[in-house]
Write a protein that binds this DNA or RNA. Structure first.
Lengths: 201, 201
DNA sequence: GGAGAATGTTGTCATGGACTACAAAGTAGT
DNA sequence: ACTACTTTGTAGTCCATGACAACATTCTCC
């Protein structure tokens, strides 16, 4: 018998996506450990066991969030680069700013992304992470081709800059420095990187 | 009636410290969310409600762990600096290495330290954090006094380096780069910092 | 339109945090 | 050393939540 008391039919129709939406909001507002499947179910208007059809356990939902997070990050980076013109330093600054911005505006999500990623068996997440990381790698290669960066393994070249960006996000999220300083710090870090990694004349 | 079946008298005698010890071990081995008060109680040989006398709730125990963590960090930094001789670059490298080492060898604890610290009302933790942070600040001031670093607000000067160290730890803990690279990355970061922050001639 | 797959629901268990009432041991004042 | 008070531990309970099983409804495709 169909439920007439509520508007929703027996099948939700889009429960998986609805749960992920709600989860992302709760994650942002109250952090991972305040995220409960039963609460998500209640908010979404389904029974407490319904989420199980889409996510075998809590971790599976967190993994899905992480995977989606990498896709969002990829989009953010692509869009920043698309609007950055052709000048290499400008492209580097744009990507760095976009990354750090994402990292501070989605602090809990980013943390989840990295902790989920390095759990054994998280192949889907690792796969999803390749897109944004590949983008950054390609940017370094581009800098090398244009003679703005030293030659060598792009990953090794970029890692200190990436670490610095990650660190800037980390100390902002940890309230060690004020969020307003973010973009200034990023610019300083990128400039220092560009100077320190210039090819020898 | 005293309990004769076990060696322990009714009062444990050192329960608070015993719980913290066990907690630190569990934190290291299995992460924060696997840390349960009831399990700690069982391991310590007391009833499930005993921890409550020393820690009103789970968060209070985590806070105590974080506070102790800052003290450990302070000790690690002091000891590194004590063995570092007088040369400023060497002292900077020593402190940077010690920090990053602590951060990678106590990953879960460090995360706890920062997340606990920026929770409203965590005055004790903020207080405990001042010791190691003050040490790093003093190091920068020393570098300035010796003419090895630009003048200016020491906090602002040091922040990019600190961010980089934090980021190196972060990407190692997140399995983005291999742990063996740690000390090399730190040296590179410090050298870059020293070059980039030299006073103008 | 009927069979089987998807998707939801109800009911249950185990774990673990939080709380209360009570018990034992320590401590201090007389 | 007796008593009153404090500290520390115990036993029992409640509640939230994740995990699971058994059953119900709807969808889909032949």
């Amino acid at each position: 018998m169909a439920d007439v008391t509520q508007g929703r039919p027996y099948h939700h129709g889009n429960l998986r996506a609805a749960l992920l939406d709600a989860a992302e909001r709760v994650l942002r507002e109250r952090g991972v450990d305040q995220l409960s499947l039963r609460e998500l179910a209640k908010e979404t208007g389904v029974s407490h066991a319904a989420p199980r059809r889409h996510f075998p356990d809590r971790q599976a939902l967190l993994d899905a969030l992480a995977e989606a997070g990498f896709a969002q990050l990829d989009t953010a980076l692509r869009s920043a680069l698309a609007n950055a013109g052709d000048d290499f330093p400008a492209r580097a600054r744009a990507a760095a700013t976009a990354y750090t911005r994402f990292a501070t505006e989605n602090a809990a999500l980013l943390e989840l992304m990295y902790t989920s990623k390095h759990r054994p068996g998280a192949t889907r997440i690792v796969k999803a992470a390749e897109a944004p990381f590949g983008l950054l790698n390609a940017l370094i290669v581009q800098g090398q081709e244009r003679g703005e960066l030293q030659a060598g393994d792009p990953e090794r070249i970029g890692i200190v800059l990436f670490a610095t960006l990650q660190g800037i996000a980390s100390i902002i999220n940890g309230n060690i420095v004020k969020p307003e300083l973010r973009d200034g710090l990023v610019e300083a870090a990128v400039d220092q990187f560009l100077r320190g990694t210039r090819p020898l004349p």
